[in-house]
């Protein structure tokens, strides 16, 4: 009886809502995850060459870092709106906006990771006959991996939060449910979608932490050394935030 009524009385927590709208919730969550994963993957694919370019010469470093910082300053609602004439009401619009945001964090972290590779290591690899390409893939990128993955974690968590703003064009995953619930002040839906968003972020962060441990076992064996490094890399990105 009370379970039936919680939809009528507009309770914050409503089991009947979760039961009857489970399909809607699942679909929104799937869209949310899909948009986030695609955005972060494209972000990585774009950030890597940009970071390599920025490392290659100071001439590129300034504009690349400057541009990504300016992009990060643009509020998310404005970013999505500015992309409207280019993409219309589509997932591509939201994904493009999210990719542009993730670039700031990813480029900085990849660059910091690459710059932290000890010079002696590079020289040793060169002495062993490694060319530039093989050096990058087999020596530098693996050593930059902890910083890179730290960046991916930050980018993923903030992308999950920002995806909700995509509901302005109807492609915001769980944000759509929040937007739909607003006109009727449907508390259970707003709360459920919000909690799911935060849960998604926590789960994604833990999964990526697990991946980081799996891919870089040496960072644990060393003990204290890698920690301050990631902490130092995280700080500047932890400071900025686009709503």
């Amino acid at each position: 009886m009370s379970e039936q009524n919680c939809l009528v009385t507009n309770d914050w927590i409503c089991a009947e809502y979760l039961r009857s709208r489970s399909q809607e919730l699942t679909e929104a969550t799937v869209q949310h995850v899909w948009i986030t994963v695609v955005s972060v993957l494209i972000g990585l694919a774009v950030a890597l060459p940009l970071a390599l370019l920025a490392r290659r010469s100071k001439r590129f470093a300034g504009p690349v870092l400057g541009l990504t910082t300016v992009l990060y300053t643009v509020p998310s609602l404005a970013m999505f709106s500015l992309l409207l004439p280019l993409f219309g009401l589509s997932s591509a619009l939201v994904i493009t906006g999210l990719v542009l945001y993730s670039l700031t964090i990813l480029v900085r972290n990849i660059l910091a990771g690459l710059e932290a590779v000890p010079q002696e290591t590079r020289e040793a690899a060169r002495g062993m006959g490694y060319g530039p390409g093989r050096m990058l893939w087999e020596v530098e990128l693996p050593l930059a991996l902890p910083a890179l993955l730290a960046g991916v974690r930050i980018a993923t968590v903030s992308t999950i939060a920002l995806t909700t703003v995509g509901s302005i064009v109807g492609r915001g995953g769980l944000g759509n449910l929040i937007e739909d619930a607003l006109p009727t002040f449907f508390k259970a839906q707003v709360l459920a979608a919000s909690v799911l968003c935060v849960l998604l972020a926590v789960v994604a962060d833990l999964l990526l932490l697990g991946l980081q441990r799996l891919l870089t076992p040496w960072t644990r064996a060393g003990g204290a050394e890698p920690e301050p490094r990631t902490a130092r890399i995280r700080r500047p990105t932890a400071a900025v935030g686009a709503g």
Partner: peptide, 12 residues
């Protein structure tokens, strides 16, 4: 702060 969506908090 990064994990909590602004839109969700405003909506709540």
């Amino acid at each position: 702060g990064r994990a909590v969506p602004v839109f969700a908090v405003l909506a709540l």
